[in-house]
């Protein structure tokens, strides 16, 4: 009879790292929960969660029957359910895809080295619901995807350009709440700042674009160089699902003169989507390209008044309000992230 034990104390975590290393696997540092499976006093398997992403599944050779994976999967699903989470993902090697499809997970995208699957909900249903919720039409349209942390005149320029050149524009705001400005506030600011553009609809990306799940490297603090493949999942999800569900035929991006990683992402997008991608030059002010990171630097330096030149009124109004002041406080007391 197998017994599941949660990895709780430091000694157990070290055992887990060693166990994974012995089987040529790495312990990933975004892991939030792990279990061991014991056969009496011997560890025979392990699985982990990074929030709602399942990873690091391992069953030792003697026990490689499907059943142990099943038992671990069932346990993880129940742990997630306990926290009210009914939507989960797994990254695995292409050769293990069948293991997870037999657990009723469905493939989202596949790259050369990895397959992303989801369980509990399906991307087609979720996006269809999103489309209905925001009353998106079936006509051809353009898209812009922004984090907008906070929204700058650069973002506004990008959106206005798209609005000039297209009958309908969807502005997807990154839902992942890992930025200094909370998602709800970033969203509201963009809505206010684009209210005068009737053909613009602002909606969330949800967890399928520029998220911890599809593009975890986007949120790295230091400027570590990322490989093409690490942006590929996000690009493929956009290409295979968002463009089709929302009938998007153009996506507008700002040029990227500063960040190696963002430039790389833009390149991968161009490689896979060709002319679908429109890259437009960054808006400048007094010959300086406007960026959200520059605005955050100004905030950190306490130069709030100077920000007026770089952001729409909606952003400045926000910063003068209570929530805005809380964000300013937070930025001034912490190290800045990339986005």
């Amino acid at each position: 009879m197998f017994v599941i034990k949660e990895v709780l104390i430091e000694a157990e975590k070290q055992e887990l790292i060693a166990f994974l290393h012995r089987h040529n696997m790495e312990y990933e540092h975004d892991i939030t929960y792990s279990i061991f499976v014991y056969d009496v006093d011997r560890v025979i398997a392990t699985a982990s969660l990074a929030n709602n992403v399942m990873k690091c599944f391992l069953v030792i050779d003697d026990y490689k029957q499907q059943n142990v994976t099943n038992i671990m999967f069932h346990h993880l699903v129940n742990v997630l359910a306990e926290h009210g989470v009914d939507h989960y993902f797994v990254y695995t090697l292409p050769r293990n895809e069948a293991v997870f499809t037999s657990l009723n997970m469905t493939k989202i995208v596949e790259t050369m080295n990895t397959v992303l699957l989801e369980g509990g909900r399906r991307i087609q249903d979720v996006l269809a619901q999103l489309k209905a919720q925001y009353h998106v039409s079936d006509k051809k349209k353009a898209a812009v995807i922004v984090n907008a942390n906070p929204m700058t005149n650069g973002h506004l320029h990008l959106i206005e350009t798209a609005a000039r050149e297209n009958d309908e524009v969807l502005v997807f705001v990154v839902s992942e709440d890992l930025s200094s400005f909370p998602f709800a506030d970033r969203f509201a600011i963009i809505q206010k700042a684009t209210a005068h553009l009737k053909q613009v609809t602002v909606l969330p990306t949800l967890s399928y674009l520029v998220s911890r799940i599809t593009f975890p490297k986007y949120f790295l603090k230091e400027d570590q160089l990322i490989q093409d493949e690490q942006t590929l999942v996000d690009v493929l999800v956009y290409k295979e699902y968002y463009t089709k569900m929302f009938n998007i035929n153009r996506r507008y991006l700002g040029e990227e003169p500063f960040s190696y990683n963002t430039a790389k992402y833009n390149q991968v997008l161009k490689d896979h989507l060709g002319n679908h991608i429109r890259i437009i030059p960054r808006k400048t002010f007094k010959n300086k390209a406007i960026s959200a990171s520059m605005v955050r630097k100004l905030i950190k330096a306490g130069k709030i008044e100077k920000i007026r030149d770089y952001v729409p009124q909606a952003t400045f109004d926000y910063l003068s309000g209570e929530s805005g002041k809380a964000v300013i406080e937070m930025i001034r007391s912490h190290t800045l992230g990339r986005h």
Binding site: N67, N70, I71, F73, H74, A81, D86, L103, N104, G120
Partner: peptide, 11 residues
């Protein structure tokens, strides 16, 4: 939210 019961184990 959806509700589930059972597992994907054989039988």
């Amino acid at each position: 939210m959806n509700v589930t019961a059972g597992t994907y184990e054989s039988s």
